[in-house]
Nucleic acid binder design. Structure first.
Lengths: 142, 142
DNA sequence: ATAAAAGTGGGGAAAAGTGGGGAAATATAC
DNA sequence: GTATATTTCCCCACTTTTCCCCACTTTTAT
C-alpha cells in the first residue's frame, strides 16, 4: 500500500516515472480524472472492482450515463515500461494542469498526481485548516 | 473491456479506425443510434444480449416502442477491415452529427462515437459537475 | 569513496492511423 | 443482353505516433 510524497518530472514524450517504492504493485495500472484537479492512479486490480460497479449502472438514466462517461471514458490503461515510467495521455495532463514538475503522493490504495504549483497551494491551505478538518473525523471515530 | 478516450478521423469514404487497444474484442460489431447524440458500438456478443432485452420490452407502451425503434431499427452490422477500420453508414453519421474529427470513448461494454465538438461541450459540462457526481459514488459504495 | 539503484533524456524500430488507387460486385441505362 | 456508371471492398503507400532500448546523470546505500 502506498504512502509518502515524491517529486518527479514529466518529459517531452509525456512520460512520468513511478516512484520505485510503488512499482512492485503496479505492472498494470489505470489513471483517471480525480477530484480537486489531480489524477488518480489505481492498480488494475483495484480499478476493476470500481469499474464493474460503474458499468453495471442502467443506461436509461442521463445522470448515470454522465457519471460513467466521466469515470470510464476519463480513465486510461497504462503499462509501466522498463524504466518504471507510464505515459500520461494529453487529455489527462490537460485536465490536471500538469506541466513538467509534478508531485506524486501515496494514499494507501491509490496514487495522486499533482502539478507541483497546485499541490503547494493546496497543501499550504490544507495545513492551515488541518485543525478544523480534523473535527470531521469525529464522525468516523478516529 | 473498454476504457479511455481516443481522437480519430472519419475519411472521405466514411471509414473510421477503431483504436488498436479495442480491436481484439471487435472482429464483428454492431453500431446503432445512441443516447445524447452519439453512436453506440457493441461487440456482436454484447449486442445480442442487449437486443434480446430490448426485444422483450412490452409493446403496449409507446415509449418502449419508440426506444426499440431507435436502437434496433437504427442498428447496422459492421466488419472491421484489414486496417482496423469500420464504415459508418451515412444515416448514422448524420444522426450523430459526425464530421471529420471524432472522439471514441470506451465505456466498459460499449464504445461511443462522438463528434469532437459535441463531446468537448458535453464533457466540459460534465466535469463541472464532477464534485456533485462524486457524491453518487457513495451510492454505489466506493 | 565506490557501487548500486533511481531518475531522465533521446534515437530508432515497429505499430497505428490515414489516404487513395483499382478490381470486383452491384446497379442503371440503352 | 450488353454496355456504362456507381458503389463496395481490398490492398498498397505514406505519415505519425508509440514503444523499446541504450546511455547518461543524480541520488542512495554500504
Amino acid at each position: 500500500m502506498f504512502v509518502g510524497q515524491y517529486s518527479h518530472n514529466i518529459d517531452s514524450k509525456g512520460r512520468m516515472a513511478i516512484p520505485a517504492k510503488f512499482r512492485h504493485e503496479l505492472k498494470k495500472a489505470v489513471v483517471t480524472k480525480g477530484l480537486d484537479n489531480c489524477l488518480f492512479l489505481y492498480s488494475k486490480k483495484e480499478w476493476d472492482k470500481l469499474a464493474e460497479k460503474i458499468a453495471s449502472l442502467p443506461i436509461s438514466k442521463s445522470n448515470t450515463r454522465a457519471f460513467s462517461r466521466l469515470m470510464l471514458a476519463g480513465a486510461m490503461d497504462v503499462d509501466v515500461d522498463g524504466q518504471g515510467r507510464v505515459i500520461l495521455p494529453e487529455y489527462l495532463r490537460k485536465f490536471a494542469g500538469l506541466n513538467k514538475q509534478t508531485i506524486i503522493i501515496g494514499l494507501y490504495n491509490r496514487l495522486e498526481i499533482w502539478d507541483e504549483k497546485r499541490w503547494e497551494k493546496y497543501n499550504l491551505e490544507n495545513e492551515k485548516n488541518s485543525v478544523s478538518n480534523a473535527e470531521a473525523l469525529d464522525d468516523i471515530g478516529v
